[in-house]
Amino acid sequence: MSRRNAVLLLAPGLALLLFGFLLPSVMMLFHPPDTPPLDVGRRLGEMLTDPFMLKIIWRTLRIGLIVTAVCLLLGFPVAYLLARSTSRWSGLWLALAIFPLLLSNVVRTYGWLVVLGSKGVLAQALTGLGITDHPPQLLYTEAAVVAGLVQLFLPLVIVSCYSSLSGIDVRLEDAARGLGASRSATLRLVLLPLAMPGAVVGATLVFAGAATAYTTPVLLGGTRQMMLSLQLYNYSSVTIDWAGASAVAILMTVLVFAVAGASAWAGRKRVTV
């Protein structure tokens, strides 16, 4: 392929990326509509000293980290058992873990309204078993948001851990056990270090998704559990505060990139130990 032809083949894509993605993203930082220059920076400074906004940033970070930790805790065992299974059903179980990715987030989150709602599954079970007459408020809590996000992102962790676990030679694990290592020692000293790259990729995707999700926090947390994503939507579509929306977009992006960088660094360090 001549260089000229290659450039021609790239041109439509490059044009789309330039005018549809790069320019709008950069312009959003410096020049939102109807805003004096440098207003985004001023709003960003205000937000970083505003206790209300700091609380939202902290909640976003906290929920993102908790969701990531729970996803790893529950997803790794699924990936491990599937990667080591000799059953002919294991392909079907893997498909069942992946299948929720096809289903709209709205549908999956709606399920938690049925489970956690005031007349929902959990409330009826609690009163039916005589544990309490007045079931506690389950929706619009941080736990509800965490549960919904864990459901959304478990498949990502399972898939990425599965792909690195199924690449590990079973004989390494078998040898460690045969030489007298306990199960937990084998897990800690053999499996986890080898599975780390996949787990780090999965964890990074989960944090990025959980910290920027909109559907699940708005339905299960609402205004009582404000997160950065809800604040961005409020500024851009309810109060039409363009500089504020751009400033929140910067906060959100920086948060995701900082955590991705930190987890990549931690993953590398863990492997070399």
Binding site: L73, L74, G75, P77, V78, Y80, L81, L96, A97, P100, L103, V107, R108, Y110, G111, W112, V114, V115, V121, A147, V150, Q151, L154, P155, I158
Partner: peptide, 19 residues
Amino acid sequence: LTVLAVAAYLIMIGPVIFV
């Protein structure tokens, strides 16, 4: 590991079944 994996499947699939 089995208990954790069962919990993972319940969280992924359970709410959809109730829907």
